Simulated scan of single mutants.
Amino acid sequence: MGYVSQAESSFPAQVGKDFEEFIALSSVHCDGWGISTNDRQHAHAVLEKKVEAAAESATFQKVIADNAADGALLHLRWATKGLSISENNTHPFVYGDYSFIHNGSIFPPDSFSDFIDEKFKKLIVGDTDSERYFYLMMTQIEKLGLAEGIKTTLAIIKEHGKTTSLNFMLMNKESFVVGSEHNSEKKPDWAPADYYVIKYKKDADGVLFASSGWNQPGWHTLENHHAAIVNRSTFEIDVINL
């Protein structure tokens, strides 16, 4: 989940009464939680994360209550089989004023590592595909710019690895980018058909995106194989084909 707003806000304020239903997803996505705040007045993203189920974490409740920023990302982790449950593997991942979260799996996790710039490889502290996904994206954005960098990142991963979903959220001071790129046939057997679907709502206060599985009345759907780029100055949404 992520939002950008006109003024300082919080996840409970942006989501409203259904926020607890989203947090209840941590009964399955129980291997850690993380929040990054990307306030436009600060040079770096601020990160909080714990290896706990959000619904059972007193720290989570305090961070959520105290959170006040005009942009933030929230991730509830369900660890990919074979990857350790640790703080280093818990999302979001941050670099400078960028923060990143991913929903899905890439096999093998390091199948595309050769395409990550050495300066970013040195920053890797965990063993997840997601952290490597982030630093590949940083590599390509620095080379090609935001939109083309993201497209190239996805192309490299799909060529060299096997994926279930590459759904992601990326935020810095200028932009909030949400990518919907997944194969619904590779969802968990028990999951509903819209398991990987990303939805959003926009109002006078800002823009909120989130994954599915909870009550989202009247929200719009971000079409698969597309990314939404939100301009944090104008709050205009540009949807591009991935």
Results as ranks from 00 to 15, higher is better:
Met137Ser: 09
Phe112Ser: 03
Ser111Arg: 05
Ala72Cys: 02
Glu87Phe: 04
Ser130Gly: 07
Tyr98Leu: 09
Phe60Ala: 02
Asn88Trp: 03
Ser113His: 05
Val63Pro: 06
Asn88Pro: 15
Asn103Cys: 06
Val197Ala: 14
Lys202Asp: 05
Phe176Glu: 07
Ile157Ser: 00
Ile156Val: 12
Lys199Cys: 10
Ala155Met: 08
Ile141Cys: 03
Pro109Cys: 05
Leu154Gln: 09
Tyr196Ser: 11
Asp66Val: 03
Ile124Tyr: 01
Glu181Gln: 15
Asp114Ser: 12
Lys151Ser: 06
Val125Trp: 06
Glu159Trp: 02
Ala204His: 13
Ile106Tyr: 02
Gly96Met: 00
Leu136Ser: 07
Asn103Ala: 08
Tyr95Trp: 10
Lys151Tyr: 03
Lys143Gln: 10
Asn89Lys: 01
Gln140Asn: 14
Asn183Gly: 09
Asn88Ser: 13
Met171Asp: 03
Leu83Met: 08
Thr90Ile: 00
Ser111Thr: 05
Asn88Phe: 09
Met171Ile: 13
Glu159Gly: 07
Arg77Tyr: 01
Ile116Gly: 00
Lys201Trp: 08
Phe93Gln: 04
Val177Trp: 14
Asp97Met: 03
Tyr196Lys: 12
Pro188Ile: 05
Thr163Leu: 14
His160Leu: 10
Ile124Ala: 01
Ser111Leu: 03
Gly126Cys: 05
Thr153Trp: 02
Asp114Leu: 07
Gly179Cys: 14
Asn103Gln: 01
Leu123Arg: 13
Ala147Asn: 14
Ile141Gly: 03
Leu154Asp: 05
Lys119His: 09
Trp78Asp: 06
Ile85Thr: 14
Ile124Leu: 14
Ala65Arg: 10
Glu118Lys: 13
Tyr195Ile: 05
Leu123Cys: 08
Leu136Asn: 06
Met169Leu: 12
Ser175Asn: 15
Glu131Gln: 10
Gly161Asp: 04
Lys187Gln: 12
Tyr200Ile: 10
Tyr98Gly: 08
Ile124Lys: 01
Lys158Gln: 12
Ser99Tyr: 05
Leu170His: 01
Leu83Glu: 11
Ser99Ile: 12
Gly96Asp: 06
Ser175Lys: 15
Ala193Trp: 07
Ile116Glu: 02
Gly145Trp: 04
Leu76Phe: 01
Lys122Thr: 12
Leu123Gly: 02
Leu154Glu: 07
Asp203Gly: 11
Thr164Pro: 06
Leu123Ala: 11
Ile106Ala: 13
Asn183Ser: 13
Ala69Phe: 09
Gln61Asp: 10
Glu142Cys: 09
Thr164Trp: 02
Ser105Val: 12
Pro92Gln: 01
Met138Ala: 15
Glu159Met: 09
Val63Ile: 11
Phe134Arg: 11
Ile106Met: 14
Ala191Pro: 10
Glu159Asp: 11
Ser130Asn: 08
Phe107Ala: 15
